[in-house]
């Protein structure tokens, strides 16, 4: 209600060049950098500190990792295309791209859980197996939760929140842009997680 009246909800601030939501998301992402930074730091410390298996022994299947990397990269493209379509006043196309993004991310999660986590757990390799698997489950799990969060937000804009497009297409497009920023960041984190856990 009152938020619609606040300055710079829609229009960019002349100094920062961003509207409120976009600036807020970027600040949030800065804090996310520190969150994942701490975990990467923990990974490096554990790896250099003691008995830490190299990837030859860890037997994480890089093919699943590579496939998931492709899925996420593609979802990033469809995400940015969804925003571009809304920006070009083509909500039908925008929604289609958004749905594809949702499907790709669900596929990512499915592969991650079905073929990786559950498979490993079935083999008795739980987080307590070694520090490598501990940090692996922890970081990819946290990343997976971020994916899940993104999916929930996208589904919101495709269903309950879709009405905003008719009321205020500008604000709706802004919100898709913010979702996109978050989504690309999640993709970016995976770009680092993939080599760190599967290849090095």
């Amino acid at each position: 209600m009152s938020s619609e009246l606040l300055p710079h909800t829609l229009e960019a601030h002349p100094v920062t060049g961003m509207y409120n939501g976009k600036f807020g998301v970027w600040l949030f992402l800065a804090s996310e950098v520190m969150l994942f930074g701490a975990l990467f730091s923990a990974y490096i410390l554990l790896r250099t500190h003691g008995d830490f298996p190299s990837h030859k022994e860890t037997l994480l299947d890089y093919r699943f990792g590579a496939l998931n990397t492709f899925l996420l990269i593609t979802s990033s493209v469809t995400m940015v295309m969804a925003w571009a379509s809304f920006k070009l006043n083509d909500p039908g196309k925008g929604k289609m791209y958004l749905w594809i993004t949702v499907i790709l991310s669900c596929a990512f999660l499915f592969i991650k859980i079905k073929f990786e986590y559950l498979h490993k757990i079935h083999e008795g390799i739980t987080p307590s197996y070694s520090t490598f698997y501990g940090i692996y489950y922890c970081m990819t799990g946290l990343h997976g939760l971020h994916i899940l969060g993104g999916v929930v937000v996208m589904l919101y804009f495709l269903t309950v929140g879709a009405g905003l497009w008719n009321k205020n297409p500008h604000q709706f497009t802004n919100r898709i842009e913010c979702t996109g920023l978050y989504w690309h960041f999640v993709d970016l984190v995976w770009i680092f997680l993939f080599p760190v856990f599967y290849l090095l």
Binding site: L27, A30, S31, E32, M34, L35, F36, G37, A38, L39, A42, C138, L142
Partner: peptide
């Protein structure tokens, strides 16, 4: 904003 996330990570 920038100091709390490392503790969140450590807490996890």
């Amino acid at each position: 904003l920038l100091a709390f996330p490392p503790l969140e990570a450590a807490g996890v």
